[in-house]
């Protein structure tokens, strides 16, 4: 068991002929992900990866021909909202959006549209999903994580790799790793993923990697305090960040005095979460 992706995932890659799309498709296939199709408008009929993966002009046609049940998006930011709408309208239940820099007004439209459908979006501006040993959707390097019992959920990219690596060095593996992305408005929140981990029998413990900005961590703390039975260890990045400055991620900003690391750490501690002072401390806290 795992969450969101596993060996039954039939993946479609939107933007498969672009530089990033093609490179990461190759990486995902090497990892063992079942990539069944790609979409690039205007390139329908082509094949990529030595003729192994067919390219279609539209997501709807790709789904009809291949039965894809998940999509990963690598298209440039200006076309991303359209690509998400297209995937949702084609009936794909899981959309993972890697693209960074999507305008926030686009994301508000996307999110309000998807909320009316039975579609789960992960991202944008995220590294994607990894169920070690089974399936990788996105760009998380497969070799840094091993199969195990720890659910990992994070707003960050390389910081997540750092944590997966630290876990592996300590002999700990992940059930599934979910990168929810660093944007202020995204498809999947910490809360959504915690609910899934709570219900997943293979996940025994959870690591949550948050950062400054917004109130997603506080909502997660509330869920942990009231409904979560599995132990959670957390780290919040941005304790040294000044207010009003956007720390790289569009969502990582302390505004109007809200969204500070101290508030988040406090909320999580009150919910019984062990909060690490730095990422390399996480494996130790999980062992206790």
């Amino acid at each position: 068991m795992s969450i969101l992706v596993n060996q039954n995932t039939r993946l479609l890659v939107q933007g498969i002929t672009g530089k990033e799309g093609l490179f990461h498709t190759q990486q995902m296939v090497q990892y063992g992900t079942n990539v069944v199709a790609g979409v690039t408008p205007g390139k329908g009929g082509d094949w990529v990866l030595d003729g192994k993966i067919p390219v279609f002009d539209s997501t709807k046609i790709a789904v009809e021909y291949t039965g894809a049940n998940a999509s990963v998006i690598f298209v440039p930011a200006q076309y991303t909202a359209d690509a998400i709408f297209e995937a949702a309208d084609a009936g794909i239940p899981l959309i993972v959006c890697i693209t960074e820099g999507v305008p926030v007004q686009d994301m508000m439209k996307v999110r309000n549209y998807l909320d009316q459908k039975q579609v789960r979006l992960v991202g944008p501006n995220c590294p994607g999903l990894l169920t070690p040993g089974e399936c990788k959707v996105g760009i998380i390097p497969g070799n840094i994580a091993i199969h195990g019992e720890i659910g990992v959920v994070s707003r960050s990219g390389t910081l997540t790799y750092e944590v997966l690596y630290a876990l592996r060095e300590a002999g700990l593996g992940a059930s599934t790793c979910v990168g929810i992305g660093g944007d202020p408005i995204n498809g999947t929140s910490f809360l959504d993923v915690l609910e899934m981990f709570e219900d997943d029998p293979r996940t025994k413990r959870v690591v949550l990697i948050g950062e400054i900005g917004g109130t997603d961590e506080e909502k997660a703390a509330d869920f942990i305090a009231t409904r979560m039975t599995k132990p959670v260890v957390a780290f919040i990045a941005g304790q040294s960040a000044p207010p009003g400055k956007r720390m790289g991620h569009a969502g990582a900003i302390i505004e109007g005095g809200a969204g500070t690391a101290a508030e988040k750490v406090n909320a999580l501690k009150l919910a019984g979460v062990r909060v690490a002072n730095h990422p390399e401390e996480i494996p130790g806290l999980l062992h206790h």
Binding site: T158, L159, A237, Q239, A241, M247, A252, H278
Partner: peptide, 13 residues
């Protein structure tokens, strides 16, 4: 990476 950059600053502090 932005998250790792923040974590690095935090570690220095």
């Amino acid at each position: 990476g932005a998250g790792l950059a923040m974590a690095t600053m935090d570690m220095i502090k």
